[in-house]
Computed example of a mutant assay.
Amino acid sequence: MSAREIIDRVRAGTLDHEAALDALTGTPAAETDAVLRAALTGEFDRLFGNGWQPLELHRVVARRGDPLQARLVAEAAAAFLAGKAPVDPAWRAESDALQLRDQRKTDRIALLDAALGLLDELRRLPAIETLIPPPGTPSTTVHHHADRRVLDKVRALLAKAEATDFPAEAESYSAKAQELIARYRIEEVTAPAVDVTPFARRIGVDHPYENEKAALLDAVAKANTCRTVWSPELAFSTVFGFDTDIDAVELLYTSLLVQASRAMTRDEPAKGKARIKAFRRSFLIAYAGRIGERLRQATDRELSGHDDLLPVLRNREVQVHEAMDRAFPHTVRVRSSRVDSMEGWESGRAAADEANLR
């Protein structure tokens, strides 16, 4: 078979990876490289043109553990935007961030092996919702992110919460962070009218215990007037909300996950693989539920005395729901994970009390 026939069969799913690699080692190198490069470019063009952003595609590929494949994604992102205009600043920033990754040379067979595996993976990925217009596509969206000074203060507080070994201190720092976020939301809705609309952002959810981590993200989102749609097959959740609220959700979720992991490791049983697994899953279920309660309580305290703002805030929630329904008109509610360890449940509730608000 020619190199083109081999690659076409890989893209069609009728030739497995190992057989294709063996066959390609016997074809002329120049022909093989040209055909494989063209096939990969075609898949990257399809995905980047249909919703995928550089960092999230890089993350999905990097989860397989092959740094060469991740490098190919970075190179493809740079090539995709070359010569195109206009380019959304966020899309360019993601591509630029990837170019700082490892650029070491490698041998041709290893690169051929990685490229074939990547081609097989890319062909399986579907088109997804376009959140940032791809290069060459005009955009009329105007993002309104939170004041950097506020975000820096929140980051500093959460960093202290992550660093301390004293639960009371972590609670105090996390509480202050949520109070700042709620206060900023009040300032935003009382400011002179600015034409802002809800958007969406995808946040990666890593294994293990993806469902439970996605539940934590959902709890944080709901406490900050956002909504999430969990896509387990692609390992990310799409968070809908106003930019400032999504900024806060992303910061809080990342920090709370660090705090949860530390508390979970501290409290888990010493022996028994099955017991530890049940403990961790139950811990995260309880932690997410309690975190959601306490974040909502903190927000309610900040909103007390601002009854005049409730109609405005309710209208924002309606807009967020409408944006989610337009993007995902056929969502399915997932069943809650089962609690198999009361020890883990109780520990998760206690850790949430420590990590967050009184």
Score class of each variant (00 low, 15 high):
1 M>K: 15
1 M>D: 14
4 R>D: 03
8 D>V: 07
11 R>D: 10
13 G>V: 08
14 T>L: 11
16 D>G: 14
21 L>S: 15
22 D>I: 13
25 T>L: 15
27 T>I: 03
28 P>N: 06
45 D>V: 01
48 F>W: 07
51 G>Q: 08
52 W>I: 04
52 W>H: 11
53 Q>D: 03
55 L>R: 12
62 A>W: 00
63 R>K: 01
63 R>M: 00
63 R>Q: 07
66 D>K: 02
68 L>C: 04
71 R>P: 02
72 L>K: 13
76 A>Q: 00
77 A>K: 00
77 A>E: 02
82 A>E: 06
84 K>L: 03
90 A>Y: 09
91 W>P: 02
91 W>G: 01
92 R>A: 06
94 E>N: 11
95 S>N: 00
95 S>I: 00
97 A>S: 11
99 Q>I: 07
99 Q>L: 13
101 R>V: 06
108 R>H: 13
111 L>H: 08
112 L>N: 14
113 D>Q: 11
113 D>Y: 15
114 A>D: 11
121 E>V: 05
130 T>Q: 13
133 P>I: 07
140 T>H: 10
141 T>E: 11
142 V>R: 09
142 V>H: 08
143 H>S: 09
145 H>P: 12
146 A>H: 10
150 V>T: 13
151 L>C: 08
153 K>R: 01
155 R>Y: 05
155 R>D: 10
162 E>R: 05
168 A>R: 14
170 A>I: 09
171 E>S: 15
176 K>G: 07
177 A>I: 12
180 L>K: 00
180 L>G: 01
181 I>R: 01
182 A>C: 05
185 R>S: 12
185 R>N: 04
195 D>L: 10
197 T>L: 03
198 P>Q: 02
199 F>R: 14
201 R>N: 14
201 R>S: 12
204 G>V: 11
204 G>Q: 08
206 D>A: 13
207 H>C: 07
209 Y>P: 06
209 Y>D: 12
211 N>P: 05
212 E>S: 06
212 E>H: 06
214 A>M: 10
216 L>N: 13
217 L>N: 05
219 A>E: 06
222 K>N: 08
226 C>H: 15
227 R>T: 02
228 T>V: 10
230 W>G: 01
231 S>F: 04
231 S>W: 02
232 P>K: 00
235 A>M: 05
241 G>F: 07
242 F>A: 04
246 I>T: 11
262 R>T: 11
263 A>G: 08
265 T>F: 15
267 D>A: 02
269 P>Q: 08
269 P>F: 14
269 P>G: 14
271 K>Q: 11
271 K>A: 15
272 G>K: 14
273 K>Q: 15
281 R>S: 12
283 F>L: 09
286 A>H: 04
288 A>N: 07
290 R>E: 12
290 R>M: 05
293 E>P: 12
296 R>N: 13
299 T>A: 10
301 R>C: 01
306 H>E: 07
309 L>R: 00
310 L>R: 15
311 P>E: 03
312 V>M: 03
313 L>Q: 07
319 Q>P: 01
326 R>E: 02
330 H>V: 04
333 R>H: 15
334 V>S: 06
340 D>R: 07
343 E>N: 10
343 E>L: 09
344 G>F: 05
347 S>W: 10
352 A>S: 09
358 R>G: 12
358 R>P: 13
